[in-house]
Design a protein around this nucleic acid. Structure first.
Lengths: 260, 260
DNA sequence: TTCAATTGTTCCACACCTCGAAACGAAGTG
DNA sequence: CACTTCGTTTCGAGGTGTGGAACAATTGAA
């Protein structure tokens, strides 16, 4: 994501480069060396080495013993948890997610809109071998997920427009990729109170979502229940849709201080 | 933590300062303004503003709407999860932690040694109202925790010495604060195979721990079961001690590829 | 409503910080 | 043994990030 706003550029180059490096390490999926990282961030070995040395001294990068390679350090976990911990939503929503999980034994997700993307902030995974799964902290699309569409349907007009005018890539052959198609779906969501992802984000997966509002009535998050469409169909699907809507309303009520 | 090694100083000042700022925000526990942050990191408002602008552009800091204050951004979650995800240990250990939790309904922890401190990487909390609890990503002392002492007892001599020569602060009146006392306790741990924290880290808490070894036989982590000493005593305590040792051995076997 | 205090934002001269290139030592490979 | 590649170190220099000041916006008290 680049800053395309018209605000003056206060960016600090070496800090941008350091973030590039951390993201490259997250992407690498295993220990990486100085030279490989310098190539990944289009920098020199000496500049890369100095960034690594600073991050290592502070515990944000770790040198793998006897290998000369680096990986992300555990102090990032604390910052990540602190970032998550700031969300009262997560604490309040958790019991509701667990109730849904107990009832249907499918994967239950909680996501928020952040930087034009959905970020998963909590998750209770199904115990079935075949199940939907993602990772807390992972990003996903707005236009092709049940959580994203549930939020989109309840955003103020201007914010919705800026999402719909943006890129709408096809993830599967079922993804809605035009503004017109999405607006029709959004109308249905506004009437029914829940969203549905019929294999739009992941082939063979089905997912029901519903929006969560804060005390001022702004949509801030959504929850969803997802699984293979071989399980989430017929009467089961109707039960899940109803339950997700009620659960999301329950979370909204708790956030507003109304007893559930 | 400052880098006190004798290695040449490759530190980048603005990166150190940026990390100071992120840590100050994590510590603040709520949205903070530019001036407050500049004071917290002993910098000027303009320098602080530029760091915030860069971090905000990249999603690592978020500006709270209509307030001019900042809080940690959700992109930190992804880095934190990536840092955690690198630990196969966590995935392998989780079912074992859950078994211990089901059996005793006390808080079960998994921790690793990192930067001379214990970092909790996973945790299953007791369902009792009165329970031990911490946060994944949180740090703790080596010399006063069951996890820390379990690791300490199995470190190579040189590594153990450097911990024991370091500061050994008293957390409670029961904390072992001399190298001599800790060495006696370490001998007992080496013979029995488990460690015990009798209110050394937290008044009124009891905790049993056992070490986990990697495929090469190096101690890398430990698990523990903890609760109030009103519950963890007598025969129950003996059962927990035995179970923790067996569980840690189970995790060690799984890491080495031996069927549990 | 007015005023003072505080905070957030912007600007610019310049000091010094970070850079890149080059060199060196170590490790691995044929 | 020779060559290649990588990690580490050094240093002169250019340009980046700084700090202080000024300005705009916000807040709170009278």
């Amino acid at each position: 994501m680049t800053d395309t706003s018209s605000s003056p550029d206060y960016r600090i180059a070496v800090l941008d480069r350091s973030i590039d490096l951390l993201e490259a390490m997250a992407h690498a999926g295993g220990p990486v060396g100085v030279t490989e990282l310098s190539r990944a961030i289009s920098s020199t070995k000496s500049a890369t080495f100095r960034i690594l040395a600073t991050l290592e001294a502070r515990g944000y990068v770790r040198r793998v013993p006897d290998s000369g390679k680096y990986q992300l350090g555990l102090n990032l976990v604390h910052l990540g948890q602190s970032a998550l911990g700031r969300i009262d939503l997560r604490t309040i929503a958790r019991p509701v997610l667990e109730d849904l999980h107990r009832r249907f034994n499918e994967t239950v997700n909680l996501g928020v809109l952040s930087g034009g993307r959905i970020v998963y902030v909590d998750m209770v995974e199904s115990q079935h071998g075949l199940r939907m799964a993602a990772q807390v902290g992972a990003h996903d699309n707005v236009h092709s997920t049940a959580i994203g569409k549930a939020i989109l349907a309840n955003l103020p007009e201007g914010q919705r427009e800026s999402v719909l005018e943006g890129p709408l890539p096809a993830l599967t052959e079922k993804t809605l990729t035009t503004k017109e198609d999405l607006l029709k779906d959004i109308e249905r969501i506004q009437v029914s109170g829940f969203s549905r992802d019929r294999g739009e984000n992941e082939h063979g997966a089905s997912c029901f979502g519903a929006p969560i509002f804060d005390a001022r009535g702004n949509v801030t998050a959504a929850i969803s229940v997802s699984g293979p469409d071989t399980r989430l169909n017929g009467e089961m699907a109707e039960d899940v849709a109803v339950a997700v809507r009620i659960a999301a309303q329950d979370i909204t009520d708790r956030l507003a201080g109304r007893d559930g």
